[in-house]
């Protein structure tokens, strides 16, 4: 009896449509995030993350609508990240059906926002998203913004220590060096972050080989987020869970109810 490792597919959504390339079996409309979330949930996703890459206010409204429609039929935790810059943004997303929100740039710009969100909604809603890459900083890892294009001028480990001291529910650690490469998670980065923090750690960026998932867990990750391996149909969630089970990790298997 113990906690299962979470597998979290991530969908990039812009103006209410999924925008990353997607090859998915049985999908009627490859661009509909609501349908995709429902399929992932039925395939055993333990949570769903939406990354809202919408730039306009109208698009934002569409994202809220996506969230509302998803929450009506998908009864597992939903996280939304991207462009959240105030406690009011958080409030809107939670009201639309998000369970958690992830923040990145806004927290770097104004760390007080972390405290504000946590005081108002509790630590459990806040996922600190850290886009990190290798660099000549104290720890050898730095924080970036704008999808890895700009340096935030912060050492990644220093930033994680200071942000978690304000109380965040989870850390989503994205390797910008590995993102989209399918060359494996940055295991050293996972180990270094695990050493300094006792907050649940979600590994992201680089998953490609089926063995990558167990490796990240062995080096200290608590949960595993991936996008392209699912969207391109390289692995199904059940295959990853089978591989993890084979490596001795606990996963949530499909419910034995199912027959009613």
């Amino acid at each position: 009896m113990s906690l299962a490792t979470r597998i979290i597919p991530c969908l990039d959504v812009a103006n209410g449509r999924v925008v990353k390339g997607i090859k998915f079996i049985d999908l009627k409309d490859a661009g509909d995030p609501v349908e995709m979330a429902a399929i992932y949930a039925s395939e055993g996703a333990d949570e769903i993350t939406f990354l809202d890459i919408t730039a306009s206010a109208e698009g934002r409204g569409t994202t809220l609508d996506v969230l509302r429609r998803t929450a009506e039929q998908v009864f597992i935790p939903l996280t939304v990240g991207g462009g959240i810059s105030s406690a009011e943004d958080v409030n809107q997303l939670l009201r639309a059906g998000a369970d958690k929100i992830s923040i990145n740039t806004a927290a770097i710009r104004n760390p007080e926002l972390i405290s504000e969100i946590v005081d108002r909604f509790g630590t459990q809603v806040l996922v600190l998203s850290v886009d990190a890459r290798r660099a000549r900083t104290k720890s050898g890892f730095e924080v970036t913004t704008h999808g890895g294009r700009e340096s935030a001028g912060l050492d990644a480990l220093d930033w994680i220590e200071s942000a978690t001291s304000r109380g965040v529910g989870e850390i989503l650690l994205n390797s910008m060096d590995r993102d989209g490469t399918r060359s494996g998670y940055d295991l050293e980065m996972i180990r270094r972050v695990r050493d300094i923090c006792d907050t649940p750690l979600i590994a992201s960026g680089g998953a490609g080989d089926i063995k990558d998932f167990a490796r990240a867990l062995a080096d200290g990750a608590d949960a595993l987020l991936a996008a392209s391996v699912f969207h391109f149909g390289i692995y199904r969630i059940s295959q990853i869970k089978d591989a993890l089970k084979g490596a001795g990790y606990v996963v949530r298997e499909s419910s034995k109810l199912g027959k009613n």
């Binding site: 490792t5 459990q124 949960a223």
Partner: peptide
């Protein structure tokens, strides 16, 4: 527990 909060799917007996 060393890592908190307890987040995720756990068995109930």
């Amino acid at each position: 527990a060393p890592i908190l909060p307890h987040i995720g799917w756990n068995e109930v007996t």
